[in-house]
Design a protein around this nucleic acid. Structure first.
Length: 484
RNA sequence: GGCGAAGUGGCCGAGUGGCUAGGCAGAGGUCUGCAAAACCUCGUACAGCGGUUCGAGUCCGCUCUUCGCCUCCA
């Protein structure tokens, strides 16, 4: 079997992955700022990293997966302008900021649960880790990497020479020339960033600190929580590409300046969801929330749609693209249903070659689109075998089921469980419907035996009008409820 | 202006020096009372212009176009 290679944003190359501690992986992924419902962009990110975690576990690693919840608002820009976004939303909804944070945190996890995203082992909140953040800031001030100015504390970028290595933005002078970073009198250098902010009158979320009452800067929460739960050097840190600069750059600077050790070994960045080629984002307002999407599509279809493209590629959203994915996924589920019902035969299947190809795809920087293409090839080959007179042996069927349940199910999360497959076939009516259907199918079978095709077709057409589709196979008729 | 990514058949979307990606849609066929499903076959795609090479969608250069980041953002 091939070994896992991960594209490391730091080196811009695929590298052989091995954790610091054999058998154990420490992984941190930037979580959402909870002031609104999650949209498709969040889904792409967290589904992608979910597969990373699932694949690492499949490989036998014990993974500690930490994903923060940012529940303290940041300003709308880094130059002390604008407003705390959570506080702003709280004013709009006329509730306490913490109510905003908590209700959207719940909303976030509801959506992720529906997408089959496994919960992180630890989901720490920024507000729950103020002392840890203050401690890092104190260390940085003590070491001369940060300075206090009028109740604010800034990180001195000039004191950390490798700043910009991740994003390739090493020339701070040019950054200032064309950038939008505003010159602040309190900062010694325009690219210095805030570690702690003085709370202005009316600011609700605030805490006491050695520098007065205030609140932490955005970047420091991730460094603090990652190091608290995963140690000073972690194996994998993931996040959205748009956070490479400045967020991840700042995280590195804070952590490494404080500890003197490398912060992250593998940086992973997922690409954006676009709409008509333009990034989907809260700021642009061109986003579609998951709750809206779930009204039209099974969450598993959304998950499948996301995994059909690579995590480092942008994914263009359109209703028709998701519909195409829906058809494809249904085909896969149909194959599984058929496999589970297959009568024992004598044919064989070369399942191991598909296992190997799937493993190779996932070991190659989590190439889910290729893994899915292998699963489709398997589906085709399996259906072909089941079409033949000799069918497939019980042993071959067992291997096929195991393959689909492990890779499509457990790793990619796009295969429904046997119970779900049976339930979706039966629809919401459950057992009663199944019983009624068996009676109808029996009647229709008798009609067909008498060659009363008019009656047979009438039954089928009437059922189809109610959303129930019949299929006649060599082994008898099957039915399934189509989604409206 | 700086840093970075990308342009693939009707659509979505992998690949990255020679070997079919895959899905959706479409055409033909097998099977079927018919249909659906399934299976088989088919489209001869890689922005443009040069170059390297026995051979380039894949490497190099230039041009065009698009997008991301440089402010909060998955």
């Amino acid at each position: 079997m091939s070994s896992l290679h991960i594209y490391n944003s730091l080196s811009r190359n695929k590298e052989l992955f091995e954790p610091i501690v054999p058998g154990v992986v420490s992984m941190y992924v930037c979580g959402p700022t909870v002031y609104g419902h999650a949209h498709l962009g969040h889904a792409k990110s967290y589904v992608s990293f979910d597969v990373v975690v699932r694949w690492l576990r499949h490989l036998g690693y014990k993974v500690r997966y930490v994903q923060n919840i940012t529940d303290v608002g940041h300003l709308t820009d880094d130059a002390d302008e604008g407003e705390d976004k959570i506080q702003k939303q709280a004013r709009v909804e006329m509730v306490d900021p913490m109510e905003i944070a908590q209700s959207y945190t719940r909303s976030y996890f509801e959506d992720m649960d529906r997408l089959g995203v496994l919960r992180p082992n630890i989901a720490p909140t920024a507000t729950g880790h103020i002392p840890e953040q203050i401690e890092i800031i104190e260390r940085l001030v003590g070491k001369g990497h940060a300075y206090e100015s009028n109740g604010n504390v800034y990180f001195s970028v000039g004191s950390f020479p490798s700043y910009g290595r991740l994003s390739g933005r090493t020339d701070q002078a040019s950054l200032q020339a064309g950038g939008r970073v505003e010159q602040r009198s309190e900062k010694r250098s325009p690219s210095d960033f805030a570690l702690w902010k003085r709370a202005e009158p009316g600011h609700i979320m605030k805490w006491p600190s050695p520098w007065g009452v205030g609140y932490p800067g955005w970047h420091v929460e991730c460094s603090a929580m990652a190091m608290k739960y995963l140690g000073e050097t972690i194996d994998i840190h993931g996040g959205g590409m748009e956070n490479k600069f400045p967020h991840h750059e700042c995280e590195i600077a804070q952590a490494e300046a404080a500890t003197g050790k490398p912060f992250v070994r593998f940086w992973m960045h997922n690409n954006m969801v676009t709409v008509d080629g333009v990034k989907m984002g809260k700021s642009l307002g061109n986003f579609v929330t998951l709750k809206e999407l779930f009204r039209s599509f099974d969450p598993m279809v959304i998950r499948f749609f996301i995994l059909q493209s690579h995590y480092r590629s942008p994914l263009d959203f359109s209703h028709s693209a998701i519909s195409a994915s829906q058809s494809g996924l249904e085909k896969l589920h149909d194959t599984m249903r058929r496999l589970l019902d297959a009568k024992p035969g004598s044919g064989t299947l070369n399942v191991s070659s598909f296992v190997r190809k799937t493993e190779e795809a996932l070991n190659d920087d989590f190439n889910t689109p290729v893994a899915i293409s292998v699963i489709f090839e398997f589906s085709k080959s399996l259906n072909g075998a089941m079409d033949r007179q000799e069918g497939i042996s019980t042993e071959a069927a067992g291997e096929a089921i195991a393959y689909l349940e492990e890779f499509a199910g457990k790793v990619l999360g796009i295969m429904k469980s046997r119970e779900e497959l049976a339930a979706s076939e039966a629809g919401d009516g459950g057992e009663t419907l199944a019983e009624v259907m068996s009676v109808l199918l029996e009647l229709r079978k008798e009609a067909r035996t008498r060659k009363d095709f008019a009656m047979s077709d009438t039954i089928r057409d009437l059922l189809l009008a109610k959303g129930i589709e019949l299929k006649d196979t060599r082994e008898g008729s099957t039915w399934s409820k189509k989604k409206g």
